[in-house]
């Protein structure tokens, strides 16, 4: 026993090194997002308050560009609203007994937040916002800004939250080509912060360069129709049955400032449905 203790004391630095390496590797390889302790990410109170302070100062330097962006977007939206109103009036004249058209967006509500920490150059990028549980942000809420899709909320603190950015290969977004129903999987390929890759698009789809890619609505996280990007090019692929397309993202990740987190009223119901289906399948195998 004494010899064992002497051995341990003599080589104590190796044991300490081994212990610390094991702890770091545990932290590194915990990929389950529900296990990420909120103390160890930037969503905790200390780091988010420090980031908030820095952001108060630096955000003033970007205001001019953001304002111009917003004005352009407002003008576009107002034009769209006017043309849609005209369309509705035309339809009302043709079909006088159509009362009200059901709105896709009646189930969705927004929480507006400011980005206080962002990164675009790492292999896995995360964004921190200054709204948390107390403001209604919950995990797995989709986040968009005025240009396009930003990411999905991952860890939520009391007054801050961390978002898995679209520039993160762990995030796959279900997207489709506008005006068609063919859907594929959008994922970032770690090369440039302006381009992502749309995979698993069936080969018989007709498309042109410049076609818009929108969210397909096949998840409870993002509603249908949110613009994600435009088709830039076709990439060479090994798979004979599916296309891989290079997509230019409309979101400018280097200038994120204000984002909206989408509250989906139907999410609880859809999640319960999926869980019930999974449980019944499990029971059915017995």
């Amino acid at each position: 026993m004494k010899n064992l203790l002497d051995f341990i004391i003599k080589h104590s630095s190796w044991f300490v090194f081994l212990l610390l390496t094991v702890v770091s590797c545990l932290l590194l390889f915990q990929s389950n997002p529900y296990q990420h302790s909120i103390y160890l990410t930037s969503a905790n109170a200390v780091s988010s308050s420090i980031y908030g302070l820095f952001n108060n100062v630096t955000s003033y330097f970007h205001l001019r560009g953001i304002n111009e962006d917003l004005q352009q977007r407002n003008a576009m939206l107002e034009n769209e609203v006017v043309s849609l109103r005209n369309q509705i009036n035309d339809y009302k004249m043709l079909l006088p007994d159509t009362s009200t058209m059901p709105g896709n967006y009646s189930n969705f509500d927004f929480v507006i937040a400011h980005v206080i920490s962002n990164s675009i150059s790492q292999p896995h990028n995360y964004i921190t916002i200054n709204r948390g549980k107390a403001d209604g942000v919950m995990p797995e809420m989709g986040v968009v800004d005025q240009n396009g899709v930003v990411g999905i909320v991952n860890v939520v603190g009391e007054h801050s939250a961390r978002i898995i950015s679209l520039l993160n290969p762990n995030l796959r977004l279900s997207c489709k080509v506008k005006n068609s129903d063919f859907f594929g999987s959008l994922v970032w390929d770690c090369v440039s912060p302006q381009y992502a890759v749309l995979e698993e698009l069936p080969r018989h789809v007709k498309f042109e360069k410049g076609d818009t890619i929108i969210t397909s609505g096949y998840s409870a996280v993002f509603p249908e129709g949110l613009i994600v990007g435009t088709i830039e090019d076709r990439m060479p692929t090994n798979d004979d049955n599916f296309y891989t397309l290079k997509i230019k993202l409309t979101t400018d990740f280097s200038r994120l400032s204000t984002v909206r987190a989408i509250k989906n009223g139907m999410k609880g119901e859809l999640d319960a449905l999926e869980a019930a289906d999974y449980n019944s399948k499990k029971g059915g195998w017995n």
Binding site: V16, L20, L27, L28, H36, T41, S47, I50
Partner: peptide
């Protein structure tokens, strides 16, 4: 040496907490 290792692990962990990279800097500094 042991204290140096523990201190560097804590420093790396501090950097990790602020930059959302879990365990990366802690492992490297150890």
């Amino acid at each position: 040496a042991n204290w140096v290792m523990c201190l560097s692990f804590l420093l790396g962990l501090g950097v990790d907490i602020f930059s959302d990279t879990q365990g990366m800097n802690a492992l490297a500094s150890t």
